[in-house]
Structure formats: C-alpha cells, structure tokens
Write a protein that binds this DNA or RNA. Structure first.
Lengths: 205, 205
DNA sequence: GTCTATACAATGATAGAC
DNA sequence: GTCTATCATTGTATAGAC
C-alpha cells in the first residue's frame, strides 16, 4: 500500500524535499536558496530533486500551492455555515488566524513575494486567494448591515478597516519584538472595530 | 566647486550607481540582483562599484539609509509642531503617506526585507525607525485623550488599530489592482477611525 | 578613478551508470 | 529512483595598467 494516499507519505524522499524547501525558502528567500542547500538539508542528491520536481521553480510552486489551498478551503467552509453575520465574521477571523499561527514561517515568504520584488521566483497567483477573503468579509459586513447588526456605511471603507486591523495583527506576529500580542489581544481589537461599525462609525458623510 | 555639497552630484558616477542599485533591488530583490546588472545599468564597470562602495552589501546599506533618514526627519518635524492632537495625527499620516507615495518602489523592498526572509541581505535596523512612528502615534492619541478629543481607552489597541488602517492603505498601493484607492479614500478611512475613537469605541470593557 | 582581464567559488541543470 | 561526475554559466571580487 505504498500509494494509499494521493499526497506524500511521512518520511518519503519527496516530502523530505518539500519540508527542506519550505524551511530554506522561508529562512533565506527564494533567490538566496540554492538547490544544493535543499538537497543537503533533505539528505539526498541533486538529481533526486530534478526527478520529482522539474526544477527549482517546480518545487517552489508546489510549496506555495500546498499552503494556499488551505486558506481557500477555510473561507469556503466558513461561508457555508450559519449564525449571525457578526458572529460569522469573528469565526472567519479566528479560523484564518489559527491557520496563520500554524504557518507563521510560510507567511513570511508570502509577504516577501506578494508585497515585495519577485526575487526571480516564478509567478504565483496570490490575488485570487486574497480576493476570496476580501469578498467574504465584504459580504458578511453587507449581511450585517441588512440584518441591522451594523449601521449603514461605505462597504469598501468598512471592509478595508476590518482587514487592516486583522492584517496588522498578523504583521505584528510576523516581526519579532512583539511577543506579548496574543490571540486575546487581536480578538479584542477586532471586537472594538465591530463595536464601531455597530454604532455607526461607518455612516459618516 | 566639484565638492560643493556633502552628497552626490546629479550625474556623478556614484549617484548613477545608487539609482541603478535602487531600481534593481526594488524590481528584483537583493539576492536576485547581480553586481554585473547594477554596473551595466549605471553604464560603468565593476571595479567602479567596488571602489566607491566596498561591496554589494555596501551599496545596499547606502540605499536603505538614504531612504529611511527621511522618515525619521518627518516624524521629528511633525512632533515639534502645534495644533490639536487629532489634527497633528492627521498631518503626520499625510506627510508619511506623501513620502511613501514618492517612494512606492523602495517601499516594496522595505516590506520584502522587513516582513520577509532576509534574502542574504545584511542586517538593517528597521525597528528603531518603525518604533519612532509607533511612539509618535501613541503619544498623539494619549494627548488627544488627555485633551478630551478622544474617549479613554486601551492605548495599545487604539495605536494598532490606527496604524493598521494606515498600513492597509499603503499595502493597497503596494500591490497592483487597486488603482482606484487614492489619497481621499485613505484619509476618509482614517477620519472614520478617529470618529470612532472620539465616540469612545476604545472604552470597551 | 576608471579601465581590461581574470581569479575562483557557486550556481542551476544534466548525462549516464546502476 | 538514486547515484557520481560534470556541464556551461553566473556569481562576487580583485590585480594591475592607465
């Protein structure tokens, strides 16, 4: 039963290569990581990497896709669930932040490539995934206004304010030196923002 | 008068090298940029770079310091000015955003190195500059509360919410695909946030 | 200060044996 | 599937002439 599942088995050469690539791309960046370092970390030789993936670009794309598919799955799952819009907004933030917490290191690579220079890395479509999250937040805010949980206001402004605070919480975890900022703190900040939305801060003219 | 000012003259070899390095570090990243590309872009040969700067790291540090010194200067200037705390907070955001607008490309490099893997680039002290901005915002919020412009609240929460929205505005400019987000939009969002602070959203218990 | 020419290690990738 | 051995190219950096 060596082919029981579609993905890699625990200690297989392929999965060891992926783990090594993640570790090195994350700690050094794409361009600064060499194929030699990856295969040494994985305890194999170069041709093994070129056999399983076709190139350095190939293993990079494999790593990125594996990490991002989870995010899309969370959004879809959460949007299919019930509850009040405000409660669902909080749950979505919780689940996304929990995923982020388990992959803080990968997230450093996402940020570097998404906001920064491409580093010579092949194109990866962040935007379609990012858009899923933005659309979900906007829709929940819209439903919250319709349900009377939030006061009417410019939907774009509310969306970006909410995501701005959420994003800030992630970035504070990303950089060192902010160890005291935990789950409770970011949750409290998001509740403050939603309190503001409920009281009609978004309805400024 | 070839040595009239302390910095580089307009078309000097040194300044041409700096401009070329900025352009390439910004568009490709530090690790993915080669010394050969820099000198070709500047129209000189390799030894010229090694003569003026000592290494690839040397010209990188020169580039980073030049850009960041401006940010510290803005914070210090704005903090020395008068006006109500809320008005000063708005002015600080304006001035920092204006600097950011003139250097969107450099900002991409800052984000990549600050939040992402080091790319093999030498250490650069972002945090002391970043801390200046954070401290300024926190102090203005504190003064605003003392003056009765803002309702009392958790100062850390207010600071990060404000900076989160400010930061989101910058990041939306950083990535393509959000062309419609201009000065007026981000200013309106920050005013909404300060409205919330004024009405006491931060005083949740 | 700027050039030509080059040293020399490391890079991504492959051929061919097993 | 995995190895040894090696390719051509590019990388940072320098010696030495002008």
């Amino acid at each position: 039963m060596s082919e029981r599942n579609g993905t890699n088995e625990e200690g297989s050469v392929k999965s060891r290569l992926v783990r090594a690539a993640v570790k090195l791309f994350v700690s050094r960046g794409y361009a600064a990581t060499s194929v030699r370092e990856i295969v040494e970390e994985a305890g194999v030789t170069k041709p093994v990497l070129y056999y399983h993936f076709q190139s350095k670009e190939g293993i990079y794309l494999h790593v990125m896709e594996a990490a991002f598919s989870k995010m899309g799955a969370i959004v879809e799952t959460d949007m299919a669930q019930g509850g009040s819009p405000r409660a669902r907004l909080g749950r979505l933030a919780d689940d996304l932040f929990a995923l982020f917490e388990t992959r803080v290191n990968e997230a450093r690579l996402w940020y570097a490539i998404y906001y920064g220079p491409p580093q010579g890395a092949p194109f990866f479509d962040f935007d379609s995934n990012h858009k899923k999250v933005v659309d979900a937040v906007r829709r929940l805010l819209e439903e919250g206004i319709a349900a009377g949980e939030f006061a009417p206001g410019n939907l774009d402004d509310l969306t970006w304010i909410y995501l701005g605070v959420f994003n800030m919480a992630m970035e504070l975890r990303l950089i060192g030196g902010h160890p005291e900022l935990g789950d409770a703190d970011y949750k409290r900040m998001l509740e403050l923002v939603m309190d503001g939305f409920a009281r009609g801060v978004g309805s400024r003219r």
